[in-house]
Design a protein around this nucleic acid. Structure first.
Ligand SMILES: [Zn+2]
Length: 369
DNA sequence: CGTATTTGACCTGCGC
DNA sequence: GCGCAGGTCAAATACG
């Protein structure tokens, strides 16, 4: 929250006073934050081309979060003080002369510690509110989705598009079968497998770039496979090969490999089931970590992107879609992981972190001397 | 000779 | 019931 306020502070370098606050905002602090949140959301929405209902929803959410986390005085005079004190903090820091005494520094340090503690508390409250709202949103979404699903399930014939089937492992109960991008005739088997309960283990599909001259269509994923069949499928000139895992005799894992009808430079490998043995050493640690071509990332938005993520964030982001079974603890962990990953990806954050670490090391060496 | 691959036959489910 | 398409089996074949 403080970051947010400091950001505003940089936007108005001469500082806040009550004159610069709209009269409507002075009436109540909540209105001010509503106005601020609305302005922020509208700015973002202009770039993201959001709809108005989305803008309103985001504005309300943002203002609720801000209000929940920030004890803003309601009286205009106190509000004025509040901004004066809070937004002039940075100026105090900037005006520190080189001859500042140690006691001042210590005081500043303790003040910052207090502020840090307060920020921690606010963050906790915010994340709690976020979780509650998220759960509520998920609930509403799932209700909405189930209603839609019921009305559309009868209309919906085949023709699962590529983006849907590429998400095989994402949705546990559905998408038990995958096919090539243009293969709309496999809908019968899609239906067939969709009706069966999810007892055959998880199914995942990967797209592996392969040389056009390479006719073997072998996906090197580290396991040993025995080919037990080959079929020519409709709508695809290249045959589909069927493999069983031969590393362990009792291993139930199967895979189907077929060149894409649209792009013969890639093969689509569909894995079915879980290995009941350790993974033999391999060039690619597993089928989930096989690198994907950039072209496939663009055409396979969710799962393909997840494959490109590091393991930690992949675990999280792959599960981020709304799940009713998701516990608050899990979602919180995911939230933390997301925050951490977004922070570590942020170069300014890493620079600030490096500066802080080096500064503390310097301080430490000074105190040691 | 043992193992892996090939390939035609067979099975199963679905739509008509 | 028939035809179609996908999946699997197993005898034949290839290979080291
Ligand atoms: Zn296996």
């Amino acid at each position: 929250m403080s970051v947010f306020r400091y950001m505003m502070r940089t936007d108005s370098p001469k500082g806040f006073n009550s004159k610069s606050i709209p009269k409507s905002a002075v009436v109540a602090g909540g209105d001010l934050w509503l106005v601020v949140a609305a302005a922020a959301v509208i700015m973002v929405a202009g770039r993201a081309k959001l709809q108005w209902d989305q803008i309103i929803a985001h504005t309300l959410l943002l203002s609720i979060l801000v209000l929940a986390a920030t004890p803003i005085p309601k009286e205009p005079r106190k509000l004025h003080q509040f901004f004066q004190e809070d937004f002039l903090d940075l100026d105090l820091e900037m005006k520190l002369s080189p001859k500042v005494e140690v006691s001042d520094l210590m005081e500043e340090l303790s003040r910052m510690r207090r502020e840090n503690k307060g920020l921690h508390q606010r963050l906790r409250i915010m994340s709690g509110n976020y979780n509650a709202l998220h759960a509520q949103l998920n609930d509403l979404k799932s209700k909405n989705d189930s209603a839609k699903e019921r009305s559309q399930s009868r209309k919906r014939k085949a023709g699962e598009d590529y983006a849907e089937f590429i998400n095989g492992t994402n949705s546990g109960t559905e998408n038990a079968h995958q096919s090539t991008a243009s293969d709309k005739t496999e809908d019968s088997s899609c239906k067939k497998l969709r009706e069966t309960p999810n007892t055959m283990g998880k199914v995942s599909t990967i797209v592996v770039p392969i040389g056009e001259s390479d006719t073997s269509s072998v996906v090197k994923d580290g396991y040993q496979w025995r080919k037990y069949g080959q079929k020519v499928t409709r709508d695809n000139p290249s045959p589909r090969a069927y493999f069983k895992c031969s590393f362990a005799p009792s291993c139930p894992v199967k895979k189907r490999v077929q060149r894409s009808a649209e792009d013969p430079r890639v093969v689509i490998a569909t894995y079915e089931g879980d290995h009941n043995h350790f993974q033999p050493a391999a060039s690619n640690s597993s089928h989930r970590t096989v690198n994907l071509s950039p072209s496939m990332v663009s055409s396979a938005p969710t799962w393909a992107l997840d494959l490109m993520q590091p393991a930690a964030s992949m675990h999280c982001e792959a599960k981020m879609p709304v799940r009713e079974s998701e516990t608050p603890m899990e979602s919180q962990r995911c939230l933390v992981a997301q925050m951490a990953s977004s922070l570590t990806k942020n170069p300014s954050f890493t620079a600030a972190l490096a500066a802080a670490v080096s500064g503390s090391i310097l301080d430490w060496t000074k105190t040691e001397n």
